[in-house]
Design a protein around this nucleic acid. Sequence first.
RNA 1: GGAGAGUUGGCCGAGUGGCUUAAGGCGCACGCUUGGAAAGCGUGUAUACUCCAAAAGGGUAUCAAGGGUUCGAAUCCCUUACUCUCCGCCA
Length: 426
Amino acid sequence: MLRVNFIRENKDRILKGLKTRNFKDEDLAIVDKIIALDETRKATQTTLDSSLAEANRFSKEIGNLYKQGKREEADAIKAKVTALKTHQAELSATLNKAQDDLETELLNLPNVPHDSVPPGNTDEDNEVFKAWENDLPVLGNDAQPHWELAKKYDLFDLELGVKITGSGFPLYRKKGAKLQRALINFFLDEADAAGYEEIIPPHLVNEDSARGTGQLPDKEGQMYHATKDDLYLIPTAEVPITNMFRGDILAEKDFPIKVTGYTPCFRREAGSYGAHVRGLNRVHQFDKVEIVRIEHPDRSYAALEDMLKHVEGLLEKLELPYRILRLCGGDLGFTSALTFDFEVYSAAQKRWLEVSSVSNFETFQTNRLKLRYRDENGKTKLAHSLNGSALALARIVAALLENNQTPEGIVIPEALRPYTKFDIIS
RNA sequence: GGAGAGUUGGCCGAGUGGCUUAAGGCGCACGCUUGGAAAGCGUGUAUACUCCAAAAGGGUAUCAAGGGUUCGAAUCCCUUACUCUCCGCCA
């Protein structure tokens, strides 16, 4: 959520940003609407405040008059206060409505894209920020997609997942289960070595948390909702981790804040179907190690670069062909200012699979979260928040299985062997 | 799940309707003092919104959250959340 004052002061920038996100001309009116609602809110607030001040003065006077035994004078003033209160009730109804309307409109306004965000409508318009310079792996004609390999080596069982839960809930077994555990530990160790504090957060969050990072109301349909207790299953560790700092006022010396955590992620993915969702390409539950940073605004883009380097390092150690995309205006998430997606090449499917998304949200999340810091003048300012997958497992597994298949079995990359304690799946 | 007791500023803690502009203490910051430090003394010490061109200075709201009673609520009433104790269930 953007601040109203920011919108007032940067109207042209906002409009330009909305155009990058392909807003139609008639939809740009939202900006003026927000400013108008805020005018109403301010004017009403001022009137109400002075009326309240008057009533407060009267009340104090009544107390004094009673003490002096001047009951009649006190009663006369009481009547005045009663009259004021009727007016105040109206004003506060107007104020509440203006605030609610303003909030609703603000929730509909996405983040301002960074200047480097390219124009475009769909994922096909994303800019290849860093291409894979080497040759892509070419497998023989007998190469199998990961869902076939999983059957061959008994690595995961989708039918059993269906029996236990439903489609999209894979059950990993044997070396498939061990591979999952190995990857999680590998990713966590790498994040730890890069200075991230490891935490294990709750896997269900309350409504305030879901709102804080922007899952509500934007992506309500994406989350599993435990209605009896009004809790949400987390779609990513970003939600509990970033909300650790909700409402905090940090000191400058607290920066940088770097936190990592492994969690399962639950996503409803309503409406998904077809060949692209086969196997592990798109599932309702997957494992992910997330990295989150809370940064000083001056250093958030340096932090973003640092995070890209970290994710690149992981993919290089896993020896997977990857490329980095800079998301275009049409594909950029609602809350993000700048997002880089990482894709690994799945040689058997002959397509790129998204395995990581690294974003700078600037103050969009921290405004909702009320996550601030005190600057050198003692003034509170909004911090910047960033996060990235480092990494999401299911598709990494898919690519590893496919790319590393040999007649002898699936070869485990060198860096992962200390974790799997086996070199090959055969 | 049942019964009871609680929730006050960064922290501890007083506060049973107007003397609260939330006492007192701790912490923190600055100053005085000191060769330097400690102690001591003094001053200051929340957040949000808002008024003012700005600064200075005002106003409003906030004592877990929301609602109510009252001219007036930290204080009385209702609802919810959370914490603690005991019981039940339980890895």
